[in-house]
């Protein structure tokens, strides 16, 4: 646990805009077991960050694994990470390998 997979990248997204600006699909018990980024909206924090890409799969959010989380649960975790005032960034561990 906590060990980075060889193909994974840690991306820190600063909360530079009022929205995160990504759309995700997938989650446990679907064809896409881990959430995949399907859209990055221009002007959102993720777009401003410049390091997240459509097609990447999200493995962890602020160190919390998304493995085994159903879609709604994964989406809620990401939304809460963006909403919390505790940090002015969200850390994503992503991989291009699906």
């Amino acid at each position: 646990p906590g060990l980075l997979e060889p193909t994974s990248t840690l991306v820190r997204v600063a909360k530079s805009a009022s929205t995160l600006g990504i759309a995700i699909e997938g989650g446990a018990n679907t064809r896409q077991p881990l959430p995949r980024i399907v859209t990055i909206q221009r002007g959102g924090s993720a777009h401003n960050c410049g390091q997240l890409k459509v097609g990447q799969v999200i493995l962890e959010v602020n160190g919390n694994s998304l493995k085994g989380r159903e879609h709604k649960d994964a989406a809620r975790l990401i939304a809460e990470a963006f909403k919390t005032k505790e940090r002015d960034y969200v850390d994503f561990l992503v991989t291009d390998f699906n």
């Binding site: 929205t19 995160l20 600006g21 990504i22 759309a23 995700i24 699909e25 997938g26 989650g27 018990n29 679907t30 064809r31 896409q32 399907v38 859209t39 909206q41 879609h71 709604k72 989406a75 990401i78 939304a79 963006f82």
Partner: peptide, 15 residues
Amino acid sequence: REKRLTLPPSEITLL
């Protein structure tokens, strides 16, 4: 492999 194909597609959420 065939089992995977029977899994439903996921909804999409904008965050």
